[in-house]
């Protein structure tokens, strides 16, 4: 199957001479949920803005379902819905009008039934006659989403969709993303909340300083880079790692109160029981044990810090 979004050697150099993207290559399949991760200023929004037509491409080529975003911009943009990071709405328009406006702008004839369903799905139907400036921040964000979906796009871009969003909206948003996926809509999102990417995304791409440093299936990434850790809280603080345990890759945390053992999450032998037996043999008392799995955040920080 040919990808719905294909990016090859996409480079962006601003007039100031700043290169925001260095030859990005990426292919996203239809129906996929793809998360772009990266620190602020890494180039996530620039990449999305280029695909959506807000920023011009310096060199390289991007196609949407085979349509070049420059020469075939009509077909390409017609398939895309964008929810930008910032809320920007015509505050004097009513909810229904502004959503209908978006649909028209994207070249679609009115579809009252579709718009009604969309507004209902986003809990906006009751507010359809309200002016946008009468709405709360959360409702405004819902309006932004409704506008982006008004023309039934095949690809939805969500730029930091849950930044500063309350729990309800966050949950509704993820429900919506799941429903969209069932309909075959491709969703590309950027986020700072790594647990979201971990939970929602099929694949993850990490951008750092304008370079796509890694693209991997979320599950595979977790398997490959994921570590488990055993954290042992001591009865008495340790000043150093006991010589009897020198063979283990241990470190002290919390002023010597905690002994931490990190190991490969996929190793057949965790070594945990063995370690605990050796602790007991060395006469070291502990009062608590905790095991955990490293999050995408840990992996991500590791990747960016090491400058992969």
């Amino acid at each position: 199957m040919s990808p719905v979004l294909s990016i090859s050697a996409a480079t962006k150099t601003y007039k100031t001479g700043h290169t925001a993207l260095h030859a990005i290559d990426l292919a996203v399949e239809k129906g996929e949920i793809f998360a772009l991760l990266g620190p602020n200023g890494a180039g996530k929004t620039t990449l999305i803005s280029i695909i959506c037509g807000l920023v011009s491409l310096t060199s390289g080529r991007i196609t949407v379902a085979g349509h070049d975003i420059v020469t075939g911009y009509r077909a390409a943009r017609g398939m895309i819905g964008l929810v930008p990071q910032e809320i920007s709405l015509d505050i004097f328009a009513t909810v229904e009008n502004t959503v209908q406006f978006s649909r028209g702008l994207f070249g679609k004839t009115p579809a009252p039934a579709y718009i009604e369903q969309l507004l209902r799905d986003l809990s906006l139907w009751e507010k359809r006659g309200a002016r946008v400036n009468e709405l709360s921040g959360g409702m405004k964000r819902r309006v932004m989403i409704a506008k982006a979906l008004s023309h039934e796009p095949d690809i939805l871009f969500l730029d930091e969709p849950t930044a500063g969003v309350d729990v309800n909206l966050r949950r509704d948003m993820w429900d919506l993303v799941r429903r969209l996926r069932q309909k075959g809509v491709t969703v590309i999102l950027t986020t700072h909340y790594l647990e979201e990417a971990e939970e929602m995304a099929d694949r993850v791409g990490v951008i750092d300083r304008g370079r796509l440093v890694l693209v991997e299936e979320t599950a595979a990434l977790m398997r490959k880079m994921g570590k488990r850790r055993l954290s042992i809280t001591m009865q008495q603080k340790l000043t150093e790692i006991p010589p009897a345990l020198a063979a283990w890759p241990l470190r002290l945390e919390a002023d010597g109160e905690r002994l931490v053992y990190e190991f490969d999450a996929n190793a057949p032998e965790t070594g945990m029981p063995h370690l605990l037996r050796e602790l007991a043999a060395a006469g070291i008392d502990y009062r608590d044990l905790e095991t955990g799995r490293s999050s995408l955040e840990d992996i991500f920080v590791g990747l960016v810090e090491n400058g992969v």
């Binding site: 943009r77 964008l82 070249g107």
Partner: peptide, 16 residues
């Protein structure tokens, strides 16, 4: 729209 940034929608639309 430039000032309120709603212009993004027009720029992202399939309109010449």
């Amino acid at each position: 729209p430039k000032f309120t940034r709603t212009i993004f929608e027009v720029l992202s639309a399939p309109i010449s």
